[in-house]
């Protein structure tokens, strides 16, 4: 399908962008999971017009209702790929659906990358990796564990079967789309339900200990949390992220690539609801304007 605006991420910045974009009569698709927003489960006390404390999850649900009421479509999945095609953009969801759009807004927030378990920091570069795509070649014929619950872990574990002798996907609760899970299983990935407790080894990684006792003998541990990172999405769209993973934008919240906008935590601190909402409103406005100007 072709649409005016695709918004990647459905936290407060993404939802507000959707509200403003759809209010300007631009056809708008919001892709992301509400529960992945930093606002989900948070309590808000410093937002304009709110007295006392507001529940972040409630705000997100009401924001989504608003966005849908103005005509937005919501896809509750992660994005697995994005590409620039001339003046347009192609965004792919984890179910394989492809959406072509005139403007794209990156509102993914700051991704959590680390597990913060013993051994993770000590063995970085000695078996611990945060990028299967980068480091797969170093694990030819070796045994690896891929940790994560979502699409990134599914895609990475399937990728690693082309290099490693054994691939274990360790997940507390699989949240990736069934098609990605089937693809990984079909490629020979062994799925283990469990919680990583410690990365162990001597000079290099030798095993991964899970809560409750099981220990898996592995040479590599790939930590692949959440969906495709905002930095990787930005690179795929031709935008060079800063080394601290933020994206630079101009006064219209447009990045260095025409038609690619960014808003919310991804543009830098302060990581505050008020900033996210304000930037989302502006990004939605300018993304819709760009899409309409193209017609």
């Amino acid at each position: 399908m072709t649409t005016d605006v695709v918004i990647i991420g459905c936290g407060p910045a993404g939802l507000q962008a959707g509200i403003h974009s759809s209010r300007k009569k631009a056809s708008t698709v919001i892709i992301g999971k509400l529960q992945n927003s930093a606002l989900h489960g948070a309590h808000i006390e410093n937002y304009f017009g709110i007295s006392g404390s507001a529940d972040g999850s409630d705000l997100l649900e009401k924001g989504m209702e608003q966005a849908l009421s103005f005509g937005c479509r919501h896809i509750g999945m992660n994005v697995t790929a994005a590409a620039k095609e001339g003046d347009l953009f192609r965004v792919t969801t984890e179910s394989g659906e492809e959406i072509v759009c005139r403007s794209v807004i990156i509102a993914t927030g700051i991704s959590r990358k680390k597990l913060n378990i013993p051994g993770e920091k000590e063995f970085l570069g000695k078996g611990v990796s945060y990028c299967a795509e980068c480091d797969c070649n170093f694990y030819k014929g070796l045994r690896v564990a891929v940790i994560g619950d979502e699409s990134k872990a599914a895609v990475s574990s399937e990728l690693m079967t082309r290099y490693a002798s054994e691939v274990y996907w360790v997940s507390e609760r699989i949240l990736a789309d069934g098609r990605l899970v089937d693809k990984a299983s079909g490629a020979g990935v062994k799925i283990i339900t469990g919680t990583p407790k410690e990365v162990r080894g001597k000079a290099n990684v030798e095993s991964l200990l899970l809560t409750g006792g099981p220990e898996i003998g592995v040479d590599g541990v790939f930590i692949e949390l959440g969906g495709k990172s905002s930095s990787d999405l930005a690179l795929d769209l031709g935008v060079m992220p800063e080394t601290d993973d933020t994206l630079k934008v101009n006064n219209s919240f447009e990045t260095s690539v025409r038609g690619v906008f960014a808003c919310g935590d991804i543009t830098g601190e302060p990581w505050q609801l008020a900033k996210a909402v304000g930037e989302g409103a502006a990004a939605g406005h300018y993304a819709a304007k760009r899409a309409k100007d193209m017609k």
């Binding site: 990028c131 795509e133 980068c134 070649n137 930095s231 990787d232 690179l235 060079m240």
Partner: peptide, 14 residues
């Protein structure tokens, strides 16, 4: 580095 590695590409200007 390697050309297919996103963080490596980002490190190039540095």
């Amino acid at each position: 580095w390697a050309p297919w590695c996103g963080p490596c590409v980002r490190m190039t200007p540095v």
